[in-house]
Amino acid sequence: MKLIGNCKISKDGVFLNGELKFTLSEETWKREIYTRLAIDYPKFHKMDALAKMAFLSVEILANSPNPYEYGDSEMALIFANSSSSQDTDLKYIHSYEVKGSPSPSLFVYTLPNILTGELAIRNKWYGENCFFIEEKFDAEFFLEQINFYFSKGAKACLCGWVNSFDGKEECFLFLIEKDTIDNTESLKEELTKLYNQ
């Protein structure tokens, strides 16, 4: 397996391939990244926090050498988090319990896998998708799933840990390409280190 690139974003800053690219001001940090990337994608503003973070990470990683150069169904999207869409769930409940009517625009984001749909739409990725709920980031679990998708024919796996709950927001994205080297153990260590940076 070959680690093509990785990106970690939170209010603390943007890390690309293990290097701190820039730091951010607290509240509007996702908007700040969007502005700095100079992207024009109005749909971004409608997304919930999970989808925004995944979207931005994918755009940032696009600036590293040769990402996403696969056929439109050759890359699997494997995503996970620990809090599902609970942040948006609470906002949606607020819409009908307090604000007077259930909000359809919030309701559609009350599923964590909506973010993979957003990435697929933006990039025209038709490959396999799966979203898992895990207690904590576990590089070994991702590598196990990546191995499954490689065995089934995927050329690459774009993986992400995207969490938004109780004011804590983070996204760690990494792209793994299939090759013949079995380096699961060293990759596990490397990914754990990069996630904790």
Binding site: V108, T116, G117, I121
Partner: peptide, 21 residues
Amino acid sequence: SSSNDANHISGPSRTGEGLFR
């Protein structure tokens, strides 16, 4: 297998692309 429509977050593809794939 699975496949994404790459089309809309809450509406199906008009061409059935993801399901077809």
